[in-house]
Design a protein around this nucleic acid. Structure first.
Lengths: 355, 355
DNA sequence: CTGTTAGCGCCTTCAA
DNA sequence: TTGAAGGCGCTAACAG
């Protein structure tokens, strides 16, 4: 009993590649090749192997596979927080595309917590992720240097370190926001407020700047007291709206840096008896699913999560597979979706009536 | 050059446990023990090992670890769809608790698609999940026999196969729903409608039955035409509400099998000019975060995602660690959260006025 | 308490 | 085209 395998840990026989090989009367190498669809396997043998696999109910062990091959087949996806509706939609898209491309995905959420971020990175390292998409819209990026140092392909949104292996998803914030401002201007709005995201975030700054720029293009004066900083949360939207309401005069329209903020604005407006859009027009950003069913349905600027996901996976894949054609940047478009939270400003209709 | 390691795949030296051992002048066993915090390691040596680890930037390889130890350290979490707001909150809770208990988590969403479910199961098998929580509230359960057969600890919501290793999270739907109905009855409602979930789901049937039961308790007659089947989605809520509006007479309150349905009802009411709660009271179920900020904020029945998550991880853990104390069932409580979508029925106030 | 030595389940040269 | 054999990086007996 010298070579008896240690069977103290498990009751049943291990049910590994060897069992399959034995049952199919081939070597384990052939089984391995069959599973991996190496084309040079004799069709007869392959069939025998597959039958054995099915009869036994054999399932290959991913960890062993990864260890042997040196490829984990996993892509990491780091998001800010999963309970923010923007992200599940992104995750869903990312997962779909990743699976299509033969990858599995490892999701981590940072919750804006530096400690948690370190844990995330560690996990990605330990699990040997072959590529990582960092979609946090945050300032956590420097922390990901550890990944870049180990030559793991990375993709960031908007901005990231300029290294080989690092790709960027460049979101064209300007286009959607310009459409939004023009939409408001066309309706007759001249008094337009803006609730930004946290200004430490690149994406928030870009949106804010794009708004100011679009305003100027339309020949509308910016009013600093109506330009307030939010934090991309519901509560932030509510508070920001409160600030705007405290101003001597009130804008006839408010544009928001994301939909959650806009929903907060809707909520606050409801609280103080302002009707949307009769008394106040509101535009959101992101076009999350929820935007279709707010009361009233929210006019918003769509940034396609599916596009983001697709581009991210594609960018990573180009780096991972040899012979890929890695680009540095991938453009992501945005555009306005008009629903029912925008209308003529209050004055417009009474002017018509009085004439 | 007989023992030269194959360095064709990677540029740098492998940076494995051996490098650490060499640098710290100890055996790899000692390194392994140090990493795994085996208490019998000499403090001096341990310190040397840790320094070496930090200096080298060594990160253990999870797959190798899993392979060697036979423990993957992963718990599976299967949900229906990640874009349904109920689930991200659950996932978040599950992840937190799992990490606290030293597990990693593997998320799969079935999207109600049988093919996708098979893929989920396969992944869980391939990755050697040590336990799986199936929180789909669905009928997919029979498909998970494959897991049960392999003696993987499982936890289901409400109902599951009666096998060793399988635990159940028994949600007390009745309590919350009774509170809801009593709340409406106390306000004076006698005409109460109900929009159920898909009746093929256990959870939906339970909620529906609990509603009928509570109605009887309060001495209120059930009106079948106001009891319509939805599908737990927004669109389903809208359609179901349309059906109710087609009835000869209209209920003064509608209770919903989940919050998404209730939001659909709110939306439909808005569309047809019914004011909530003045003309119609609405109660949801689940108390998702969004419920706080609907217009008006939604009275709902809370089923704690954190409780669910905690119980699930605990149930699995009891089975996994030896010396655990596995129970078959874990109770999950529900209770009413009153907000602003419920009020006196329309008649009540005019009665007061006319007197 | 530490080091030696087999594996864990699979992949992948290398020879046949 | 197939099989034999040596790792992949780590854990876990077993001696010392």
């Amino acid at each position: 009993m010298s070579k008896t395998p240690n069977r103290s840990r498990k009751q049943r026989a291990p049910l590994d590649i060897r069992s399959v090989a034995a049952r199919a009367n081939v070597s384990i190498a052939t089984v391995s090749r069959t599973i991996n669809r190496v084309p040079t396997v004799n069709a007869k043998l392959a069939k025998r192997v597959w039958t054995a696999i099915h009869e036994l109910g054999y399932v290959p062990n991913t960890q062993a596979r990864a260890l042997g091959s040196g490829r984990s087949g996993m892509l990491g996806l780091v998001v800010s927080e999963i309970t923010n509706p923007f992200f599940p939609e992104l995750i869903q898209g990312f997962e779909d595309v990743a699976i299509e491309n033969g990858f599995e995905i490892l999701i981590s959420s940072t919750n804006y917590d530096p400690k948690r971020m370190e844990v995330c990175i560690r996990r990605l390292l330990e699990r040997k992720a072959e590529g990582v998409a960092i979609m946090t819209f945050g300032i956590e990026q420097p922390l990901f240097e550890q990944l870049a140092e180990r030559n793991i392909p990375l993709v960031f949104v908007d901005a990231g370190p300029d290294r080989p292996g690092v790709s960027l998803l460049k979101v064209d914030y300007g286009h959607g926001i310009r459409q939004g401002v023009q939409h408001l201007a066309a309706l007759g709005h001249r008094k337009i407020g803006f609730i930004s995201g946290p200004m430490r975030l690149h994406s928030a700054r870009s949106r804010s700047a794009a708004f100011l720029h679009a305003l100027k293009e339309c020949g509308i004066a910016a009013r600093p007291e109506w330009h307030v900083e939010g934090d991309h949360t519901l509560e932030g939207g509510i508070k920001a709206m409160e600030k705007i309401l405290e101003c001597a005069s009130r804008p006839s329209a408010v544009m928001c840096s994301n939909d959650m903020t806009a929903i907060g604005v809707l909520h606050k407006a409801f609280r103080v008896g302002l009707r949307v859009p009769a008394d106040l027009s509101v535009i959101g950003y992101d076009d999350i699913q929820m935007a279709k069913v707010t009361i009233p349905p929210l006019t918003s600027i769509q940034m396609s999560r599916v596009d983001l996901a697709k581009a991210a996976v594609r960018a990573l894949k180009e780096h991972i597979v040899e012979g890929g054609n890695p680009q540095r940047e991938y453009k992501i478009d945005t555009h306005l979706v008009v629903r029912e939270s925008t209308a003529y400003p209050p004055g417009a209709m009474s002017d018509l009536k009085s004439s």
